[in-house]
Design a protein around this nucleic acid. Structure first.
Length: 468
RNA sequence: GGCGACAUAGCCAAGUGGUAAGGCAGAGGACUGCAAAUCCUUUACCCCCGGUUCGAAUCCGGGUGUCGCCUCCA
């Protein structure tokens, strides 16, 4: 039974989608004004893994993620650079898609952009105005939070609590400090679209309500994002959507914890961030992905160079196992040993169950990964050089299957044909070893290492792999 | 002030009542021409103090410390 922690109820609940077998899932995407950083990546990677697991579990998932391509920061960035907001948005949308692909994040089924849904957004706001949930001041439109009695149900705060926070900017034109803009009147030099209230652009929160409703319907199964979006963003989405439709907006609200650096939140404003782009120069993106999945998604996770190194070592161990298994799985091998391998073979389902149980438990990726390591250790210990190829092949298939659920080990195995030059060097080295010419032998090994080919002399013959 | 988390070995991190997973790093051993990979062995007064219980890292109460949200932010 799949259990998920629902931030709306603050409880772990059985996951039951509205329509059996189908999941409507919406994850808030990036505002494209800069490269995204590893902290942002944590959320995207985590919910990508969750999506993959739901699919693995047999659900037909419709995954929607927006791209916010009109917003204050984009406009500001464009002004700084003397270019247009469209240009800034285009550049960083491309960068976002490229970096996410590198992190192994599957493309969304629908990736709507705010600027391409202005008509839907205007309709949505109009509905709120008509129903008395929004009011117009000059050419701005605000949501009237006082009218929505359940306001605060996600962040578990009342309007009074929020007011007491005293960090709300005072704006005399708003009826309540917590009221937020649905439509912002155009200021000189800003992009704008015609609307019943004058030229302007949408507020941040409304796009998600409008686009989620358009592509997934009025009530969706899962709405997710980073924990920092709980308030005000998701609170506001609930208010807008439920005020407009009169129906529950999302059944399960999932939020990923933030990534810390030096015990503090990684954030643009703190200047302590590392973009995925930068990190990619130093680490294989799969290492970054592994690191981001190495803690439970609702736990804090601290970013340090050491933890990345640790992730690298761990991932290498998994890949080493894949290489070993692939060698053992070669069909031409003669298997002379059967006993231990048979017992191991019988244990394979256990590892799959272990993995599934961990993921069923509110997507415990850290625990699920440990099932991979348990499988790998058992495989190494149980499959000697003479183990049957079929068992090795099955173990490798399972490792790839489970790794794939997490978006890992995509390159597992895949012993491609070596370049002839490389193969002849290996042959030369074998000849040198046969005549105990260690100098020549070691020289060739170093030579290949420089090309990223690692040689290992094993009881069952020389074997090679690519450096991670 | 309000709302909410977190505190487990050198480091990272699972574990929601029954002898403390997993990874990284370290040490020793096996294998190897040497390596590499791998295997075996090895390292925890579970932040503190009370309480509940036959039994608590796990539940309750009280501390201490760290963090997040309450303003744009994944």
């Amino acid at each position: 039974m799949l259990k998920v922690f629902n931030d709306l109820t603050m409880e772990r609940e059985e996951f039951v989608p509205l329509e059996p077998g189908k999941v409507a899932m919406y994850v808030c995407g990036p505002t494209v004004y800069d490269y995204f950083h590893i902290g942002n990546a944590r959320t995207f990677v985590v919910f990508d893994a969750i999506r993959r697991y739901l699919e693995y579990r047999g659900f037909k998932v419709t995954f929607v993620q927006n791209i916010t391509d009109v917003e204050d920061k984009i406009i500001r960035r464009a002004a700084e650079r003397g270019t247009s907001p469209e240009e800034v948005a285009r550049q960083y949308t491309d960068a976002y898609l490229e970096d996410s692909a590198a992190l192994g994040i599957k493309p969304a089924d629908v990736q709507p952009k705010a600027t391409e849904h202005i008509a839907e957004i205007i309709d949505f706001i109009q509905r709120l105005v008509d129903r008395g949930y929004a009011y117009v001041v000059d050419s701005d439109v605000y949501f009237d939070t006082s009218r929505f009695t359940e306001y605060g149900k996600l962040s578990h705060q009342s309007l009074e609590d929020l007011e007491a926070g005293a960090r709300v900017e005072v704006d005399e034109r708003k009826r309540h400090p917590a009221d937020f803009a649905l439509w912002k009147a155009k200021k000189p030099g800003e992009p704008g679209w015609d609307s019943p209230w004058g030229e302007g652009r949408p507020g941040w929160h409304i796009e998600c309500s409008a686009m989620s409703t358009k592509y997934l319907g009025e009530t969706i199964d899962i709405h997710a994002g980073g924990a920092d979006l709980i308030f005000p963003h998701h609170e506001n989405e609930i208010a807008q959507s439920e005020a407009a439709s009169g129906k529950p907006f999302a059944r399960y609200w999932l939020h990923g914890n933030l990534l810390n650096v030096g015990g503090q939140r990684m954030g643009k404003s703190l200047g302590n961030f590392v973009t995925v782009r930068e990190a990619r120069r130093q680490y294989d993106p799969e290492v970054i992905r592994f690191f981001l999945l190495s803690a439970h998604y609702r736990s804090p996770l601290n970013y340090t160079p050491e933890s990345l190194e640790s992730a690298k070592g761990a991932l290498e161990r998994l890949y080493n196992a894949a290489v070993t298994l692939e060698h053992l799985a070669r069909p031409e091998r003669l298997a002379r040993e059967q006993g231990r391998a048979d017992e191991f073979h019988a244990r394979l389902p256990k590892y799959k169950d272990q993995f599934t149980a961990a993921m069923d438990d509110d997507f415990n990726t850290a625990d699920a990964i440990s099932a991979l390591f348990d499988l790998v250790r058992d495989a190494h210990a149980s499959l000697g050089p003479d183990a049957p190829a079929g068992v090795a092949a099955e173990a490798l298939a399972l490792l790839r299957e489970l790794g794939g659920v997490l978006g890992l080990l995509g390159r597992a195995g895949g012993l491609d044909d070596l370049a002839e030059e490389v193969q002849s060097l290996i042959d030369q080295r074998q000849a040198a070893r046969a005549r105990r010419d260690w100098k020549e032998s070691d020289w060739i090994r170093d030579e290949l290492a420089a090309k990223g080919i690692i040689l290992e002399d094993t009881p069952s013959g020389v074997r090679w792999k690519r450096k991670v």
